[in-house]
Simulated scan of single mutants.
Amino acid sequence: MPEVSKLRKPDVKIVLLGDMNVGKTSLLHRYTERRFKDTVSTVGGAFFLKQWGPYNISIWDTAGREQFHGLGSMYCRGAAAVILTYDVTNWQSLAELEERFLSLTDTANHDCIYAVVGNKADLTDPKAQVHQDSDSVSEEGPRTESQVLSACPTPPASPVSLSGLMLHKQVTHEDAVALYGRLLRYKGLDEKASLPADKMCFETSAKTGYNVDTLFETLFDLVLPSILRKRNENKESPTVDLEDCRGTGKKTRSSCC
Rank of each mutant, 00 (worst) to 15 (best):
R143S: 14
S255Q: 13
W91A: 06
G72L: 11
L184I: 13
V223C: 07
D221V: 02
D213K: 13
G249H: 05
V130K: 00
S93Y: 02
E217G: 12
V212N: 03
T85P: 03
P142F: 08
E243A: 02
L16F: 14
T85I: 04
D111E: 06
D61V: 09
R34I: 07
A157L: 14
D11R: 03
S205C: 10
D19K: 06
H131Y: 09
L162M: 12
D122M: 03
N234S: 09
L94C: 05
P159N: 01
R185P: 15
F47M: 00
K250I: 03
V12D: 10
P126N: 09
P155K: 13
C256F: 15
L7K: 00
G45L: 00
T239F: 09
F101N: 10
V82S: 00
A115R: 04
N21T: 02
G44C: 05
L228N: 12
H131W: 06
A95C: 07
V137L: 15
G23S: 03
L123P: 12
P156E: 04
T32D: 02
D11G: 01
R185H: 15
D61Y: 01
K250G: 12
D87S: 01
S205F: 12
E236V: 01
G164L: 09
L183H: 08
V148D: 12
T25D: 06
W91G: 02
G181Q: 15
V40H: 14
V4S: 05
T85D: 00
T144S: 13
T62C: 10
I227H: 02
K250E: 12
E191S: 10
S5T: 10
V148P: 13
M1Y: 08
A95M: 03
N109D: 05
K120P: 15
T214A: 15
E145Q: 11
K187A: 14
A128T: 07
K235P: 11
S163G: 13
N90W: 00
V212Y: 08
P155S: 12
F216H: 04
L104P: 05
R30L: 00
L49T: 11
K13Y: 06
R8F: 05
K169P: 02
K24R: 04
N211L: 10
E233F: 12
T25K: 03
K13W: 05
E33G: 02
L104R: 01
L84K: 04
K192R: 08
E99S: 08
T214Q: 15
R229M: 00
